[in-house]
C-alpha cells in the first residue's frame, strides 16, 4: 500500500511546485504551518544554537506542526543534549510550550509518566512529545525508549539526528555513519574515521516493536516533515519520528548550507525518507534528482579524507550504503500513477 494519504499536498503549481515553504498560488489550507503568519514559534528567537543549526530548525518545524495538530495542547519532555542546553540556559527559555528536562537517558520514561498522568486525570486532549538528539535516543536513552515502545505509551518520540554527540564536543554515537570524523573516530590509519558496519537504525528497531507509526523526515522537505508529524499526532500509542538535522559545527560545513546538505543526503540515498505503520513500510519519499554520494560528502569536512584518492574504497563503501538504501526502499522507482 503506497497510496498517498489525502493530507499530503498533491496540487502541482509550476512556478514553485510543492517544494517551497509557502506558495501564494495555493489555497491557505494547503500551505504549510511554517508559512502561516500565526504559527506558534514553539522554539523562539534568542536561543543559543550555532549559526545555521539544523536541530533548532527541525525542532521548530516539528513542534509547530504538532501544536497545530493538537490545538496547542502539547507538553514536551526533553533529553539532555544540544537542544536542551541551547534553549534553556537558566533562567531563560526559548520554548513557548510546557517543557521539562530531567536526565540524558530518561526522556522517554518522563514522557510516559506525563502521558500516564494525563490519562489518570482524564485530560485526553493533552498530548505528549519526547525529544532528544541521537545520543540521548539511540545510545543513552535507548532502554527507556524501547520500554515506551513496548508498552505502547501514548507518546510521540522525536529524535533529531545529527549523527554524533555535538553538545559535548562531537563524539561518535551509534548514529554516526561510516568513515565520518568525530573527536573519537579520528581520520587516521588505513580506514580513517568511524568504522563501517557499526551503529544501528532506530527507525527499523522501532518498527520491530510493531508500534503504530514510525517515520523519517528531513529539514529540507518541510511538506513531508509536517505531513508526518501531523499524521503521527492523529494516532494514539507509541510513535517515533527521526528527523535528519545537519550540524555545521560537528560536520564542518558552511552554516548557510544546512538545508542544502539535508537535501543532498536524501537525494544521494544516504538518508532514506519513509514511513511505516504497524511494522510495515507504507510510504517512501522518492528521490527527485539523484546525485552521487560524493556531492553530499564534499560539503562536509568530516568526510574530507574520503574524497582523497587513497581512500577511494571508503567512497565506494558509502556509495554502497546509499545504493542499498535506494534498493531497499525503492527510492528511485517511479510512483504508480
Amino acid at each position: 500500500m503506497t497510496q498517498i494519504p489525502e493530507s499530503k499536498q498533491k496540487v502541482k503549481f509550476y512556478q514553485t511546485g510543492t517544494f517551497t515553504v509557502g506558495n501564494r498560488l495555493l489555497d491557505a489550507e494547503q500551505r504549510t504551518v511554517q508559512a502561516t503568519m500565526d504559527r506558534s514559534n514553539s522554539l523562539d528567537s534568542g536561543h543559543r544554537a550555532c549559526q545555521g543549526c539544523g536541530e533548532a530548525l527541525g525542532a521548530r518545524f516539528a513542534i509547530d506542526a504538532a501544536m497545530r495538530a493538537t490545538n496547542n495542547q502539547l507538553i514536551a519532555a526533553n533529553a539532555t543534549g544540544c537542544l536542551e542546553v541551547f534553549t534553556t540556559p537558566y533562567p531563560e527559555t526559548a520554548w513557548s510550550i510546557p517543557w521539562i528536562h530531567s536526565l540524558f537517558g530518561n526522556a522517554a520514561a518522563v514522557a510516559s509518566g506525563i502521558a500516564a498522568a494525563m490519562k489518570a486525570t482524564g485530560r485526553d486532549d493533552v498530548r505528549v512529545i519526547a525529544q532528544g538528539g541521537d545520543g540521548g535516543t539511540t545510545d543513552i536513552g535507548f532502554g527507556c525508549l524501547s520500554g515506551m515502545f513496548d508498552r505502547n505509551d501514548d507518546v510521540l518520540y522525536i529524535c533529531y539526528d545529527n549523527e554524533a554527540y555535538m553538545n559535548t564536543g562531537v563524539q561518535r554515537s551509534s548514529a554516526t555513519p561510516g568513515a565520518a570524523r568525530t573527536a573519537t573516530t579520528m581520520p587516521v590509519g588505513e580506514d580513517p574515521g568511524n568504522a563501517f558496519n557499526t551503529g544501528k537504525s532506530v527507525p527499523l528497531i522501532a518498527m520491530a516493536h510493531m508500534i503504530p507509526y514510525v517515520a523519517t523526515a528531513s529539514v529540507h522537505d518541510l511538506q513531508d516533515l509536517e505531513y508526518k508529524v501531523t499524521k503521527a499526532m492523529q494516532v494514539r500509542g507509541a510513535r517515533y519520528i527521526e528527523i535528519f538535522v545537519p550540524c555545521p559545527l560537528g560536520w564542518g560545513s558552511v552554516p548557510g548550507d544546512t538545508v542544502k546538505i539535508a537535501r543532498l543526503a536524501v537525494e544521494s540515498g544516504m538518508y532514506p525518507l519513509f514511513e511505516a505503520e504497524d511494522g510495515e513500510v507504507t510510504g517512501v519519499t522518492k528521490i527527485r534528482r539523484q546525485v552521487p554520494v560524493g556531492d553530499y560528502l564534499k560539503t562536509q569536512r568530516r568526510f574530507a579524507h574520503v574524497l582523497k584518492p587513497d581512500n577511494a574504497h571508503q567512497l565506494a563503501q558509502l556509495q554502497a550504503v546509499a545504493d542499498r538504501n535506494i534498493k531497499r526502499f525503492s527510492l528511485t522507482t517511479p510512483e504508480e500513477a
Binding site: 512556478q15 514553485t16 517551497t20 515553504v21 509557502g22 506558495n23 501564494r24 500551505r31 504549510t32 511554517q34 508559512a35 514559534n41 522554539l43 523562539d44 528567537s45 536561543h47 544554537a49 545555521g52 543549526c53 539544523g54 533548532a56 530548525l57 521548530r60 529539514v219 518541510l222 544546512t258 538545508v259
Partner: peptide, 15 residues
C-alpha cells in the same frame, strides 16, 4: 521576491 515563504520558513532563529 514572489513570497514563497522560504526565508520565513527556513530560518533556524525565527528571525
Amino acid at each position: 521576491c514572489f513570497e514563497c515563504d522560504n526565508c520565513y520558513g527556513v530560518c533556524p532563529d525565527n528571525a
